[in-house]
Each structure stands twice: as C-alpha cells, then as structure tokens.
Design a protein around this nucleic acid. Structure first.
Lengths: 206, 206
DNA sequence: AGTGAGACTGTATAAAAATATAGTCGTTGC
DNA sequence: GCAACGACTATATTTTTATACAGTCTCACT
C-alpha cells in the first residue's frame, strides 16, 4: 500500500469520519464542498489516487460508490498484552498476544488494553494466573491508596495494590505467600503503566 | 412504531441485509430489480411507508439517502441476569439487570447470557461476590466432572462445580466455609441452567 | 355495494452524481 | 531546464437517482 501525501490522508480521514458519522459515503460534490474545492474534479482525482493506492474502492457508475478497504486490520476491540520483557515498552508489537473483541466502554473508566496476569500474587483479590486484566493507561503517580495498578519497578512489570506515603510507595500483593514491594521514589525507578479497571477470564480453568 | 405488513418486513429485511453486506443503501432501481418490480415507483412507495412507520429515514434529494432507524433497542451484547427468585425462569424479564456490550463469541463455546454472582461459595476459584459469569445455556445432566455449572436445586439457582456418580450428584463449592450440596436425582429436582464459560469483573472492588 | 389501504404497473422528468477533457501553478527529481 | 506529479480550476456531458402523476387490481372492512 503506497504512502499517502498529507493532503491525501486528510481527505481519506474526512471520508472515514463522514462514513462513520452517517454511514453514507460522500459524493464528489460533498467532498468538494467540505474542502472548498471549486471543481468537482479535484475530488474526483483525489478519489482516483486513493483508489489507485489501495485505500478505497470505487464502484464506477454508482452514486456514492466509495468503499473503504479494510484498513490493514480493522483493530476492533483491545490488544491483549502477554509477558512484557523488562524495560520494554508495554504496547510493543512483540508482546501482543492478540486482539480481543472487547468494548473498551464496557469498563468505567474505559480500558485501553488487556494484560495477561502471570502468577498468583493477587489470588485473594480473585485474580488468578492466566486471567486477563482490563487496564486504563494512566501514568500519574497519585492513584488512590488501595487502587490496583500495573506498575513498573526497575523495568519489571507487576500488578499490585498501590499505597503511597510521601516518597515511600508500597506495592501490596493479595496473597500471604508474597511480600509487599517497597519502593523509594528517590532511589528506585517506578512508573505506573495503568490502573486496573476490569477482569476477564475466558477458557482455561473455570 | 406501526406494525409492518409481511411484504413490508420483507423489504425492510432486504434493505438491512444489503446495508450490512456492502454498507451502501440501495437505490430505488436496485430495490426494484431485487424484487422484480416493473416500476421504480413500487420501491418508492414502499420506502415511503417504511419511513412513515418510522423504520427508516429518507433524506430527500440525495442518492441512496436511506438510513435505518435504531431498531427499538438494538439488543447488542448479552443480557445480565441478577438474583433469580426460586422457581422462576432464568431469563424472565424481571430478573434482567441490563444488557452489557459483550461479544458472545469472546468465550468458547459462545455465551448466551451473563449472571451476577451472589455470595462467596466459589471464592477459591477466583469468583467473588458481585462478579459476572458468562453462561452458555446447556441443560444436559452430563457435563464433565469438575465443570462449573449454573444449577437449580429444588427451585434455587446456584453456581457450583459438578460431580456425578450415577444418581448421586455433588455440587461442590470452592470455599471451605461452605458445604457440598448432595443431590439424589431420583428424589430431588435438579436442572442445569447452563455451564460457566467465562468471568467478568467490572467496576466495584478491583 | 362502496371505500380505502396495500401492492403494484407505466411513464415522465428534474435533480444529483459520476466522469471526461483541457488547463494552471508549484515542487521535486534528474 | 524540463518532465512528472500533486493539487487544483473550469466547463461539459452523460448516467444515475429520486420522485411526481395517473392508473390497475385485490382484499378486508362496514
């Protein structure tokens, strides 16, 4: 699929927006009005280019015969992240286990991605090994105490309950077999990757 | 919303199918061809009726200006069932807490409804009070031992692990504070309302 | 027996939409 | 320096579409 010029992406974006909004592809004239062209042919030639580059399909001889090509995987639902290597960014392509058809708005506040749980450190909160957490991206270091967060301590990703007292942060497991993690904000590197907004368990051992 | 005649529903169904299929509303001429009308006016007047009865909206003066009206609650997702009174059917309207936008195919095998969990009898299986179970309707009395089922014993609905030995059925909790329920198929009334295929936890105490 | 709605046929016609042709004006690449 | 391309203007010319008007036929009412 060829690259688009800035102008071309602008036009493609508008077409997508219009179709999402009222589910009716635009005519050349409507495109022309939207971009203040003074000739319908400006719209026509842009559509030709978009079609040639494979972003849209034009049905000749039919009114509004524009259809979007499956935009290289529709990306519905949320990405499911598996084990994240230390120090690597969360959403890197290589940690993606897949994509699940989950409505982000099912959770409140909305979820941004799904994370596969490893280990039993949150067992007593009803979160088992292999469970899937819905996570909302949220980097502020001031979640309410008791909030379940996805945190990164010295590069390592972990899910725990948050508790902070000044520069002292505790990441609390929910399983007596595990010990709380103590973090000194001035000495250790800690970032929050998000807050847990939901849980999903599918297949496996129910 | 007025009732439709058989012919009118047929036509509405076709329009819906067409729009689902290629996301482009039909023209009068296309409708005419599809139903072998010999006059475009047959299509026109049907559209008028559908619009008058509130099933579609016609944008006058625009090609393919047909849009479907939100079909009296789209019923997307799955119904969420709350506390079911003893002896009452599961899916009765009065036990419905709502509808959640969950894709049935997210689970395997697919889910038919969602059920709000009450109590802590399955705590050690990571199922807490208030959790939501995805359930597949399945009435056979021969699920594999260890399968988590939604069962009804003498009218009362409960979620437990299934274990059967001849006429002796055990419904096992996953919490030492609770006792297994013993059921004799010849003396007690037992039906299976479904098998648990997934778990969802949103909001509340995460 | 008469009326009205539903489901059409048949014929037009104006408006909407697609699309061709001929250019202009900048950039970019060789 | 010039060809190629992107991004247009300007003007036509078909096709497609929407839509009006005038009927026909059937069936359910009342």
């Amino acid at each position: 699929m060829d690259e688009l010029t800035p102008r071309q992406s602008e036009i493609l974006a508008w077409i997508r927006a219009r179709m999402a909004e009222d589910s009716l592809p635009p005519t050349r004239a409507e495109l022309m009005r939207a971009f203040a062209f003074r000739s319908p042919n400006a719209a026509e030639s842009h559509l030709r280019v978009l079609a040639r580059k494979g972003y849209i399909l034009l049905q000749s001889g039919t009114a509004r015969g524009i259809r979007l090509c499956a935009s290289e995987e529709e990306e519905i639902g949320l990405p499911l992240i598996g084990r994240v290597a230390a120090g690597q960014p969360m959403l890197a392509e290589e940690f993606r286990e897949g994509q699940l058809p989950v409505d982000p708005k099912l959770f409140s506040p909305g979820a941004d991605y799904l994370l596969r749980v490893q280990g039993m450190s949150m067992r007593d909160a009803g979160i088992l090994d292999g469970d899937i957490l819905a996570v909302r991206h949220e980097a502020s270091l001031t979640p309410p105490d008791g909030q379940m967060v996805v945190a990164r301590v010295n590069g390592e990703v972990t899910v725990k309950r948050w508790k902070r007292d000044g520069n002292q942060v505790w990441l609390l497991p929910e399983n007596p077999d595990f010990s709380p993690i103590s973090v000194d904000l001035q000495r250790d590197s800690l970032t929050i990757e998000g807050v847990v907004v939901g849980l999903l368990r599918i297949g496996g051992k129910l």
